[in-house]
């Protein structure tokens, strides 16, 4: 790969990093605090490429003067000269074939912009349960049915299965997935959310079973291809929610659930429910 190509590629890589921070799609892949490092990295890459381009255009030495115009673009490890005749060969002008791999993330982020992980990721190794967060001692937020994160519901239930969540309503947002070993009497769908620590590669799922005495969930299934199945149908909007069905559930935890006995999956009794848009950010942390 010639120097010019490397410069173009670096501008592209840096450019897409800047782009995903500016348009917010970086939240599909990493945590909010990554905005600054990703942005800085993008700017550095572009700057380095521009410096290289400018120095090339002005004909300044780059430490490997022999490789220009002689190789006809072939990739034969052009930077492995033996150092005779030229001063300073620390920096090969050409890069090996592996550098071409950098095109892949550029293409993925320019053309496809893979959506945030959703119900399809609740199947593989990602099916491991998220670790319990440290449980906040402070009382629930004031108000009627305050919004609460799914991870916090699970953590509070694990810490105290007969705690405040069994006596007060809360509102929890998540997407619907097929229920896994639901207790008798609860709905065939669970409410789930993905939790990421560093980036989407370490995403893990938290879920609650839904007890639905009022039949509010009737007719509401999980996403068309939920549960990791490959039978996609009609969910290809690619706009970030992966076709998942997001709901806000108001309810109360059934006392005694969410312990180690049920794998830390509490049961939430649904008192009301509404379809909602995909939250932003889409993950919990």
């Amino acid at each position: 790969m010639s120097r010019d190509t490397q410069h173009v590629l670096l501008v592209l890589v840096g450019g897409v990093l800047i782009k995903i921070v500016l348009d917010g799609s970086y939240l599909r892949y990493v945590r909010p605090w990554s905005a600054t490092p990703v942005l800085v990295a993008g700017v550095v890459l572009v700057a380095v490429a521009v410096v290289g381009l400018v120095r090339d255009l002005r004909g300044l030495p780059v430490g490997d003067g022999g490789s220009h115009g002689e190789h006809d673009g072939h990739e034969h490890d052009g930077h492995e000269h033996d150092g005779h005749g030229h001063v300073g060969h620390g920096h090969g002008a050409r890069a090996g074939p592996a550098a071409w791999m950098l095109v892949l993330p550029v293409l993925a982020l320019l053309l496809v912009v893979p959506p945030a992980l959703g119900s399809a990721a609740v199947g593989g190794v990602g099916a491991r349960a998220a670790p319990m967060a440290a449980v906040p001692d402070d009382p629930l937020p004031p108000g009627e049915a305050p919004p609460l994160g799914l991870l916090e519901v699970v953590s509070r239930s694990a810490a105290d299965p007969h705690g405040v969540l069994t006596t007060r309503d809360v509102t929890v947002r998540g997407f619907l997935v097929p229920a896994r070993t639901p207790p008798p009497g609860s709905a065939p769908v669970d409410l789930a959310r993905l939790v990421i620590t560093c980036c989407a590669a370490d995403a893990s799922a938290v879920r609650v079973h839904l007890a639905d005495p009022g039949g509010l969930l009737d007719g509401l299934g999980p996403a068309a291809d939920g549960g990791g199945g490959g039978s996609g149908g009609g969910s290809g909007d690619g706009s970030g929610d992966a076709g998942d069905r997001w709901v806000a559930v108001r309810g109360r935890v059934v006392p005694g659930t969410g312990t180690a006995a049920d794998g830390h999956v509490p049961t939430l009794t649904v008192t009301s429910l509404s379809l909602v848009a995909t939250p932003d950010p889409v993950y919990e942390y």
Partner: peptide, 10 residues
């Protein structure tokens, strides 16, 4: 695809 991009971006 998402995990791949996530690893790269991270």
């Amino acid at each position: 695809a998402t995990v791949f991009v996530a690893v790269c971006v991270q």
